[in-house]
Design a protein around this nucleic acid. Structure first.
Length: 873
DNA sequence: CACTCCCGCCAATTA
DNA sequence: TAATTGGCGGGAGTG
């Protein structure tokens, strides 16, 4: 049939082709008119010959043999014989086939012969792995399809996967450009980086525990949503321009392919089982699990796996587990790319830019552990980087739909943080550092603003949620930091690290903090939270310190438990009430961020919804808007409540004026599994220059971070140091810079209550860090922000040197139980949107829908909650 | 029977 | 409107 068609087609094609033909394909088909034959094949040709018709006829009537025969004809023969040898000339097959039809019949083309993998090999054989840069090889889909004797649909399957790895790119209709493997390593690197952000936690987790499966799967699920949101980072990134392309629906196959690859790159074992991958990749993953959905995903994964196998990147293996043997694939491709991965290790900070990205987005985070130690994590956001468009949007308006992107970033950020955390944790352990964090038990509380904090503590709703999947008591981890002040609270008290701009908290989850929340919001939030779940919460809100303690005491026997209860409520409320996406500012692009200064005032967004992951860019406008909105919503809803909150006097000191320019925004990173108890909080607003890589000097850190012991979060108030503006002004080690401290003053915090929303805690830190503060420590935790962060920071910079810490409310998104409403129940709709496949997610429309609503948030939250359900109490 | 995954319908997008 | 893309899942081949 094919042959026949071709012959026919040939004549026609030229016409079309010619115009199209621009590219001369070099390697491409020898045929002159490769170009699309036009669907002649399918086209209804009057002739009985139509391929389709024939096939059908045959199929229906013919015996399998018949079918086979024909198929065979199509082409595969050669392949069979010599798979390895790539038959360079696939073209000829056809011819051969004809002659050998009979043979075929005998041979019966087994299914294998028609496999996608084989087809892919043939396809690849046609093009050089490393084409000369000069030549541009264009691929005509029709041509290839005809040559290979398959329907075009199959070619799409191959091309889509190749495209995900950037081996080819689409240039026009029916036209793809062959790039070969020149960029493969770079692409893989990007994917790895992106994967670490998205799945790093999970993977780590996984490794730790042998069982990948459940936890693994589950965790991934959790995380997945985030990741999913982002459209192909990698691919798209490079061409931000092509954003337009993005608009399209998501190309799930491409995205799936990338994600699938990411899983391998992130996995230490380099082995990924199909079911896990499928779970991870299933957008919505509800527990409900559509079985059918799962099956479909698996089918797709096989498709992808076949292509990747042909590329020599993976191979099929079987993982034997207790349950039995599962199909899996092992990565056999390159593992080390030029080193980006290392970053995590904290090596060179080089700004190695991701390929696509401009930035050298390596971010280095140093955390002071135990006061002494510093851990550095370098992460680069590759994919993370938003396209310009996104950026713009972000900058332009807070609420705008753009947020989706922002969200993505946020999520990435979060992931990063998590990763960093883990690393840190590991390092710490290794180093034998017992107390991981230099929390602030702030010795001299008074000394630092920080000190006050503990007491003043923000009412935080618990952030932490035990990991769902976490097997170990990770979730529970709440290490109780020893912090003095915190002592009451079980967890930790946030301590400020001397010098450092960041704070350590005991809890593990990531949170996005927004500085400058308006008190209203916070209070409201708190109040609501308190109402629902915990009175304590309320109390906390009102009286942070005391409350916290209380909570901890009563509720929190175990931090986790406490958290759980509260969180849900908080979440709900938050979600419901505030539509705002995040107030956080996330630095998306490292450099660009322009937003910056202005933000100050606005910058503080009160609450961040992890779920949403919206990050408000540092851009001033956005934050403001966010704040406003959030505020509004909150206010409206709960204004009544707010009144209460005002925390104890000390906190007030610097109330945040909600309006104030300064309000710092912070990112709180939920601790990932690996990271035992660290939570990082970054201030978005940091001084611009901050990002200085010079790790050593604290001052260099432009970003203030707060480390929080995982457990601690609940009760802790957050302290933010604004060290930034003049970050350089390094604060002397032991002490925080005065300015910083100033900022921190509780009072200020109190006044403004920042809300923290934690995303689900993915991982609970296993290690309970005892927060110890080393005031003296020089350890300046120099954080190196990822480019993104850096950017944001820079952008954000506060005008005023001081950052005001606002009390933060942490919400736990995850916990399902406590909240009366289950996430799902609450907002299913959003849910869907939220979790959709990347592509879908990417879809602006979807987001828009959500945007207005909290629902979005809710959805994310919900999701998490569901997952997290397991958290140990 | 479970695992693979081919095949092609048909909807979404584009041209 | 026609063509191109590509999601999707039935159901067949394989072991």
């Amino acid at each position: 049939e094919n042959i026949f068609d071709r012959s026919r087609m040939a004549p026609k094609t030229p016409i079309k082709n010619e115009p199209i033909d621009l590219s001369k394909q070099k390697g491409c088909t020898p045929e002159r008119n490769p170009i699309t034959p036009v669907k002649i094949i399918d086209r209804p040709q009057p002739d009985p010959w139509t391929p389709t018709a024939n096939l059908k006829m045959l199929v229906s009537a013919a015996s399998p043999d018949m079918r086979d025969r024909e198929k065979k004809k199509e082409l595969f023969r050669p392949i069979e014989n010599s798979e390895k040898s790539d038959t360079p000339d696939s073209l000829q097959y056809d011819i051969v086939d004809d002659s050998t039809v009979d043979e075929f019949e005998k041979q019966r083309p087994s299914r294998k012969q028609k496999s996608l993998g084989l087809l892919c090999q043939k396809f690849l054989a046609r093009y050089p792995n490393y084409p000369l840069s000069t030549e541009k090889t264009t691929i005509s889909l029709d041509e290839v399809a005809s040559i290979l004797g398959v329907e075009r649909r199959r070619i799409y399957d191959i091309v889509n996967v190749l495209e995900s790895l950037q081996l080819v790119s689409r240039v026009a209709k029916n036209q793809y450009c062959w790039h070969g493997r020149h960029n493969l390593s770079q692409t893989l690197k990007m994917l790895q980086e992106a994967g670490e952000l998205q799945y790093g936690e999970l993977m780590t987790f996984q490794h730790k525990e042998q069982d990948l499966e459940y936890k693994f799967g589950e965790q991934k699920k959790e995380t997945t949503p985030d990741s999913q949101d982002r459209p192909l980072l990698d691919i798209s990134e490079p061409d931000c321009n092509s954003a337009s392309a993005n608009s399209r629906k998501d190309k799930s196959l491409r995205i799936m392919s990338q994600k699938f690859v990411m899983l391998f790159l992130v996995s230490k074992t380099k082995i990924v089982t199909l079911d896990i991958a499928a779970k991870i990749l299933i957008e919505e993953t509800q527990d409900t699990v559509d079985h059918s959905k799962f099956k479909t995903k698996v089918r797709r994964l096989y498709d992808i796996a076949n292509v990747l196998t042909s590329l020599g990147l993976i191979k099929k293996v079987h993982v034997t587990e207790e349950r039995g043997r599962k199909p899996a694939f092992k990565w056999i491709g390159p593992v080390e790319f030029s080193g980006k991965t290392d970053e995590l290790r904290g090596h060179s900070p080089t700004s190695d830019p991701l390929p696509g990205t401009q930035s050298g987005a390596c971010a280095r985070y140093q955390i002071c552990v135990t006061g002494k130690q510093r851990f550095t994590c370098h992460t680069s956001f590759n994919g993370a980087q938003p396209c310009e468009e996104t950026r713009r949007k972000v900058s332009s308006e807070p609420n705008s739909p753009h947020q989706e992107r922002q969200d993505e970033y946020c999520s990435k950020m979060i992931n990063l943080a998590a990763v960093c955390r883990q690393k840190i944790e590991e390092d710490t352990r290794n180093s034998s550092i017992t107390s991981p964090f230099s929390l602030l038990p702030v010795p001299g509380d008074s000394d630092f603003c920080v000190n006050p904090l503990p007491q003043a503590v923000f009412p935080v709703v618990q952030a932490e949620v035990p990991n769902l999947s976490l097997p170990i008591g990770i979730s529970s981890q709440a290490p109780h930091p020893v912090t003095p002040a915190a002592s009451k609270t079980e967890n930790g008290k946030p301590t400020l690290v001397s010098n450092q701009p960041f704070l350590c908290f005991p809890s593990s989850s990531l949170f996005m903090l927004c500085g400058g929340l308006q008190e209203n919001n916070l209070s409201e939030t708190l109040a609501t939270a308190g109402d629902k779940g915990n009175q304590s919460a309320e109390a906390q809100a009102a009286v942070p310190p005391a409350v916290c303690q209380k909570r901890s005491s009563h509720k929190c026997t175990s931090p986790s438990s406490c958290v759980d209860d509260e969180e849900p409520a908080a979440k709900k409320q938050i979600m419901e009430q505030s539509d705002l996406p995040l107030s956080l500012v996330v630095p998306k692009k490292p450099f660009e961020s322009t937003k910056p200064e202005s933000t100050q005032g606005n910058g503080c967004s009160s609450a961040v919804h992890l779920e949403t992951y919206h990050l408000d860019l540092t851009s001033p406008a956005a934050p403001e808007a966010a704040n406003k909105e959030s505020t509004k919503s909150l206010d409206c809803q709960e204004q009544e409540k707010r009144s209460d909150e005002p925390p104890p006097g000390n906190e007030h000191t610097s109330k945040e004026d909600p309006n104030q320019p300064f309000q710092p925004q912070y990112l709180y990173v939920h601790p990932t599994p690996g990271l035992s108890s660290f939570n990082l909080v970054f201030s978005a607003n940091q001084a611009p220059g901050v990002s200085s890589l010079a790790s050593n000097q604290l001052p260099s850190l432009s970003v203030p971070c707060v480390m929080v012991p995982s457990a601690a979060l609940t009760s802790f108030p957050l302290v933010c140091s604004p060290s930034f503006t003049s970050p350089l002004s390094a604060v002397p080690d032991g002490s925080f810079s005065a300015a910083a401290s100033m900022n921190f003053t509780m009072s200020s915090l109190a006044s403004t209550t920042p809300v923290f929303i934690s995303t689900t805690a993915v991982v609970t830190p296993r290690v309970s860090p005892t927060p110890s503060v080393d005031p003296q420590q020089p350890a300046h935790p120099a954080l190196h922000l990822s480019p993104v962060l850096a950017r944001s920071c820079s952008a954000v910079k506060l005008d005023s040197p001081v950052c005001v810490g606002h009390p933060v409310t942490l919400l736990k998104l995850q916990q399902p139980s406590s909240a009366p409403l289950t996430p799902k129940s609450i907002r299913p709709a959003h849910h869907e949107a939220f979790f959709k496949t990347p592509g879908s997610l990417g879809d602006p429309v979807a987001w828009k829908k959500n945007e207005g609503n909290q629902t979005r948030n809710a959805s994310s939250v919900q999701r998490r909650l569901e997952i997290s359900g397991t958290s140990p109490d």
